[in-house]
Design a protein around this nucleic acid. Structure first.
Length: 308
DNA sequence: AATCCGGGGCG
DNA sequence: CGCCCAGGATT
């Protein structure tokens, strides 16, 4: 397979974005000199759909409590879910602990550095595997998150926003922008993400502060509106299963003893929906249901708690 | 490719 | 109140 023709913009854009990053990079704890590969992975999992400002304090507390995969692997799952607190999508916390246990059992407690082994870890997908390779191990990889997608959509494709779904063609185009050299590729990954997070933002891009404004095809075209706007649909929230599940998880995180079914029912008005959500939470491993034993169990004696 | 999965803060 | 946030797993 032939490599795609290099974008004539790429070399200059990379140089200017990396130079900008050298000056403007945020001082985030998972970028500190004393960081560990495991700490980088923890940050990436926490950052999956949760903003940096909310992750930073949680990450500090988490790494102080469980600095290594072995520490997290040995923790009670209830403690892990409580420490996850309100970062959202608590299945990520379960996956992270499963990941820690896999690292201990299959990799001697040290995070692997090859793509396939990283992708095989629970909760690690294409983005996270690439990010860990670049940021923890300084290796070349195609790091394509929502920030890089937006930067490339604007600078290279001249579009306001990337398509709702990532395509193979987009991944291939992004790969063509990644330098061959390991260290240069890792710097481009970090710099392009940071530009998307701080300057080339989704809502109000600060083109006046952009190091590549004079090379941006979207800006040159007069900042045309989003071509996919008519297809975007906001995810509903009020009254959804996700809200109900969140209520239950919040209740169980606070509880110091198993919670009777009636007390769980008090946090959600729709009994049928709550029953469905509780079944799903139990199936997901986020909640444990304790049934009263005996031949004639009393359903009202059923209790719920966090696992482990 | 489409859905589901939390939660909060900002314009 | 819509929209966005360093996505992943499942179907």
């Amino acid at each position: 397979m032939l490599a795609a023709d290099p974008d004539p913009l790429a070399a200059d854009v990379r140089r200017d974005v990396v130079a900008w990053f050298d000056v403007h990079a945020r001082d985030l704890p998972w970028r500190a000199h004393d960081r560990t590969p495991w700490g980088v992975l923890v940050s990436e999992v926490m950052l999956q759909q949760t903003p940096v400002v909310r992750v930073e304090p949680a990450w500090r507390a988490w790494m102080d409590r469980w600095p290594t995969p072995a520490d997290l692997a040995a923790a009670p799952t209830a403690d892990v879910l409580r420490a996850w607190d309100r970062l959202g999508y608590p299945r990520r916390a379960l996956r992270l602990q499963e990941c820690a246990r896999t690292v201990v059992e299959q990799h001697g407690g040290d995070l692997p550095d090859d793509e396939a082994a990283l992708l095989a870890l629970p909760g690690v997908g294409a983005y996270t595997a690439a990010a860990v390779r670049a940021f923890a191990f300084g290796r070349r990889s195609v790091v394509l998150d929502t920030n890089v997608r937006r930067v490339l959509a604007r600078v290279a494709a001249g579009e306001a926003l990337p398509a709702p779904a990532q395509t193979v063609a987009e991944t291939r185009a992004a790969a063509a922008w990644v330098p061959d050299d390991d260290a240069a590729a890792a710097r481009w990954a970090a710099a392009s993400m940071e530009l998307g997070a701080l300057v080339c933002t989704a809502r109000a891009p600060r083109c006046d502060a952009c190091p590549v404004a004079d090379r941006c095809r979207w800006l040159a075209a007069g900042r045309p509106v989003d071509a996919h706007a008519h297809r975007r649909r906001t995810q509903a929230w009020t009254g959804t299963d996700r809200q109900a599940r969140g209520r239950v998880m919040a209740l169980l995180r606070e509880a110091i003893a198993p919670v009777p079914h009636d007390a769980v029912a008090a946090v959600w008005p729709d009994a049928a929906q709550l029953a469905r959500c509780l079944d799903a939470l139990v199936a997901d491993g986020l909640v444990v249901r304790d049934e009263p034993s005996g031949d004639d169990p009393d359903p009202s004696a059923t209790t719920y708690r966090l696992p482990g």
